[in-house]
Every structure is written in structure tokens, then in C-alpha cells.
């Protein structure tokens, strides 16, 4: 967990490790992730945010809706393995 507070810029929303591409169709989606986060943080519903970003297919939409950052869990294990 060390270093978490020192990070600059946007608040820690777990905004990394988001899949680069949609698992099903292979379209690149990660470049829209931060914009999606900003829209969610400004109070929009996921539906509005995804519609505005132009993510039409439900395979790509579920990538956004079901993503959960696990970097905090990984940071706890740092040094324990390898």
C-alpha cells in the first residue's frame, strides 16, 4: 500500500489494469476508460456514459460495467512472492 497517497493527479479509482480490448469482439476499449470514469464521477449513469462514448455492443459494455481493480490486493502481496 506504500506510495498510494503520493500519487499525483486524479484520485485513486483503480484506473489501470482495465482490459485493453474487449474479450469477445476484440475492439480496443481501454482508451475510453478514463473518460468513462470522469463521466461516472460527474454523476452520470453508466448507461448515459456508455452511450455518449459510443460503445454499442453489449460485449464491450459489460467490460466497463463489471470491471473491478485488483491492484490494491496485488500491492499487499508485493515482496511475498518472487
Amino acid at each position: 500500500m506504500e506510495g498510494e497517497q503520493e500519487r499525483e493527479g486524479r484520485p485513486h479509482t483503480g484506473d489501470q489494469m482495465f482490459p485493453v480490448r474487449c474479450f469477445t469482439c476484440g475492439a480496443v476499449i481501454a482508451h475510453k476508460w478514463e473518460e468513462y470514469q470522469d463521466k461516472i464521477n460527474s454523476g452520470k449513469s453508466p448507461k448515459e456514459a456508455l452511450d455518449e462514448l459510443g460503445i454499442k455492443r453489449y460485449c464491450c459494455r459489460r467490460m466497463f460495467l463489471t470491471y473491478k481493480s485488483i491492484i490494491k490486493e496485488l500491492s499487499r502481496l508485493q515482496g511475498a512472492v518472487g
Binding site: E2, G3, E4, E6, R7, D15, Q16, M17, F18, V20, V28, A30, H31, W33, E34, I71, S75
Partner: peptide
Amino acid sequence: PVYDNIPIVELFKGQ
């Protein structure tokens, strides 16, 4: 790269 803003990894202090 086609897109400049694809996040690859988050680095914390000292990494």
C-alpha cells in the same frame, strides 16, 4: 500506437 491514452500499468512511488 493508434491511441495515446491506453493505460498499461500504474506505478507507485519508487517503482
